[in-house]
Each structure stands twice: as C-alpha cells, then as structure tokens.
Nucleic acid binder design. Structure first.
Length: 409
RNA sequence: CGGGAUGUGGUGUAGUGGUAGCACGAUUGGUUUGGGACCAUUUAGCCCGAGUUCGACUCUCGGCAUCCCGACCA
C-alpha cells in the first residue's frame, strides 16, 4: 500500500491525558482512534494487525476442532433471567427497544450458545464438539483504563466446548491450554506469557489464565521461572506460596495482564437451559462445558506494551501490519519499481511515497514499527542497492536490488 | 461505585471581571530531501447549563468528559 493514500497520518504529539504506552503509540501511529473512554475505532493499520491476530487464533482453534460461528450481539432478556445473570452481573449493558422490550448487549455468549445447542445435541454421539466466534463484547466497566487493555466494547474470541462427561472436558481443556500457548507464542509473546493458576469459582478448583508480564498489567502474579508457570495473587494463599508443579516456594511477584483464560463451566450453564443428551442406555446425561476466551484488542495492546522502544512499536512479523516499510528518499524511480516487484511477489509492503523529509519518514517508520525497513535513495543506489534494516536491530546493510526479495522471504 | 486531578483551536500552553495570544500541527503554494528542513499563506478555541454582574473564559453552584489510585471484573 502507498502511504500517500493512507487516510490516517501519524502524530508527533499526543494529549497528556494519554499515559498508557499502548494508547500513546497506537494513537500516534494511526492504528486506533478513541471515541470514548474504553471504546476505540480500529483504523486501517490497526485492523491489519487485528486481522492477523484473528487469523492466528482461528488457525489454532480450528486445529482443536473448533467450528466457527457468529452469534448476535443483542440477546433476549429471558435467557439472562434464566441463568440469573440479568440481575447479578453488574457490568451487563441493558437496552430497550421502542416497544419497551429489554435486551442485553452480550458481554459473553453462554446465554446464546447453550440454547442454540439444544437444537443440535440429542445423543452422546453428538459429543464432544466446540464452537467459537470472534465478536464484539460489551461490558459496562465502571472504570475502563490502560488504553485498549480494558475497554467497554472489545473484540473477543470465545470458544465453548460440550462434553458428555468431566473426563472428556478435562482432556479437551488440556488441548485448549496447549492451543492457547501456541497462540501467544505465534504472536510473539512466548517469553513473557505464563500459564497462570487462578480462582476457579464454584465449580472447579482452579481455572487457568494466560498472563503476560508487563508493568501495564493490572494483576499480580507469582512466577515460577523453572516451571514456566505462575499463580495469580488472588489464590496464592491457597497454594501456600509455592509452585503447584514443583512445590518450590521460590516465586517472584510480577505485574501482568491477563491475555486469555480457560474455564471449566461444568453444568453451570447447561443446567438452567436443560441442555442434555441420552447416553448408551437412553438415560439423560447433563452436558458439561468449557469456555475459553482471548481479547484481541487487549492482545494487540499487550504486544505494544511488551515490544516497543522509545521511538515506537516493534511488531513481530506474524502480526505486523506489513512486512516491509519501503522508504523513498528524494526523487528516484527505483523505489516505485521495487515496490511493484515486491507486491508482485506477494510481499506485504507499505511504500512511503510521500513528499516529506527524510527525517519524518524515518521517525514515522520507527513509530509504526514494521519489521523490515528498506530505504531507497541516491545514496543507497550509489552504494549498490537499497538499505535494509530490521526494526529491532540498529545495524543496516546494503542489499543489491535484485536480491531484496530473497532477503525478505 | 469511593477518592484524586484536569478541562482555553487537533496538541501544548499564556492570559485578564471589559475585543483571547503564542508555539507546534493542519491547509495552500514554493524551495528542499539520510533523522520530524525552510519561506510564505490560510485555518481553528475558552466543556455544558444555571446563577451573580452593566459585562463571565475568569467568580459561585450544578452537570458532563478525560486521566490516575482503589473497589469491582470467567
């Protein structure tokens, strides 16, 4: 894409109110725009990142046999009455239509997915399976904060699994756990993300969160470096301050943000909707469920919090809006040719063809944080080609133009 | 929801009970082109409402918004 055609532009300065790093960088670079506290427009560059994150998650959910669906945002009140959450969930957005009918804006989708599955599950033979979606969730946060890390409306992947018994749920839960670790590895947060024991509520001893270490986080976790796991502070006393795997007490307290969680729901939601199946003997069995969530916007924000320097963002290749940032300095015809040839080879490239100063192009390139910067100028051409520099390295090198696409493979 | 801070062009700020100024940005034109270049040009503002007052951006009250701390948070 030509940068001259991008309707967004970068900003050098940002309102002093914006103190969180993810908001500062994403807004300055034109990835997102704030509409209200906790609600953001995703702009072209930001959406490219979101779509890459989405696709990675989709591939991993498909790999554990998740079937993608898309459920509505508007939910009938009756379903929420049935689970008791119409009254008990205080961050539920309630809306009314002109006839006075009340509805909820979905903060999660058990109230939709469970009644839905009543239509399709009748036998143990229909089990197990899992369905998931990418959907905007609404939560009436009393205090949204930390840029896009805690919003009131946010994109989330939620997967629900359905099983004939707890043992089968356990097995699937383990698969989901591994799939989640894969997702966080693929988006570039492997080293900072810990499987974390957290409170399980009333139906299982512990749930698991995926916590990424960052000062911007709102949770405190205790990390066991040796086992690569952590314990949420909320349950540390239950575990007597020791690692549940190796039972050592040598734990570090760290700030972290919850980027995902997985939960055994058991029959908590299947029961109120009377979702059951027949077993081999024709007897009714209650269906046990698991749910598994990842907030996409929060994940994007977390990547920024973890991977940036004083000049801007540093996107991992897997989620970067483009692979290559091609800068044309001064007038030269070579840049345009290189751009076309890279595009023809299927390489995603943002081409800074704007008529602005070199300094501005460099600054913008550092801010936007595309993994490879390729500079075409009289100077580079005189030294034999183009200058290639990785965003996360300080040294650049001159590459002959013909070899460029090989380097970028 | 409890506490705190702040509201003046897009951003950062100055200012006085009596015509709101500067810088950056943005626009347009031109000169530039290896780290946010230069010249000219144009543009845009006192959060909202009530009160006090001859007169309120300024004082009072009430609201609203944003950010921060806490609480809450599958």
């Amino acid at each position: 894409m030509k940068q001259s055609q991008l309707f967004t532009r970068t900003q050098k300065e940002i309102s002093k109110d914006e103190v969180s790093i993810n908001a500062q960088l994403l807004i300055r670079a034109g990835f997102i725009d704030k509409l209200m506290a906790g609600t953001y427009t995703i702009l072209p560059l930001g959406l490219r990142v979101m779509k890459k994150i989405e696709q990675i998650i989709r591939e991993e959910m498909n790999a554990i046999d998740g079937q993608e669906i898309f459920m509505p945002t508007l939910h009938p009140k009756e379903n929420w009455i049935k689970t008791g959450r119409w009254d008990s969930m205080d961050d539920l957005y309630k809306v009314k239509d002109s006839s006075g009918r009340e509805m909820a804006l979905g903060p999660t989708h058990e109230e939709v997915v469970v009644p839905l599955m009543k239509r399709f599950i009748s036998s143990y033979k229909d089990l197990p399976f899992a369905a998931y979606q990418f959907q905007n969730k609404f939560r009436m946060e009393l205090r949204s904060k930390s840029g896009i890390l805690r919003g009131r409306e946010f994109m989330m992947k939620d997967l629900y699994s359905f099983h004939a018994d707890a043992g089968d749920l356990d097995a699937y839960y383990e698969k989901a756990k591994q799939a989640y670790l894969k997702v966080f590895e693929r988006v570039g947060l492997k080293n900072e993300t810990y499987l974390t024991y957290a409170s399980g509520g009333s139906f299982s001893k512990y749930s698991h969160e995926f916590q990424t270490l960052t000062e911007a986080g709102e949770d405190s976790i205790y990390v066991c470096e040796r086992c690569r796991i952590a314990i949420n502070k909320e349950i540390i006393d239950d575990l007597e301050h020791s690692c549940p795997e190796c039972h050592e007490g040598n734990l570090d307290e760290k700030k972290a943000i919850e980027v995902g969680n997985i939960f055994k729901l058991m029959t908590k939601f299947s029961a109120p909707f009377d979702l059951k199946a027949k077993d081999e003997n024709g007897e009714d069995i209650g269906i046990v469920m698991g749910c598994y969530g990842i907030g996409l916007g929060r994940l994007m924000g977390t990547i920024v919090e973890v991977l940036h320097d004083e000049k801007g963002m540093m996107w991992p290749e897997a989620v970067a809006p483009f692979k290559v940032h091609l800068l044309s300095l001064g007038e030269n015809e070579e840049a345009q040719k290189i751009y076309q040839s890279l595009v023809e080879k299927g390489i995603e490239v943002l081409y800074d063809d704007r008529d602005t100063s070199a300094g501005e192009k460099f600054a913008d390139s550092d801010l936007i944080g595309i993994p490879y910067r390729v500079v075409v100028s009289k100077k580079s051409l005189a030294s034999g080609g183009v200058e290639v520099k990785r965003r996360d390295e300080s040294e650049s090198r001159i590459v002959r133009t013909e070899e460029l696409s090989n380097i970028l493979k």
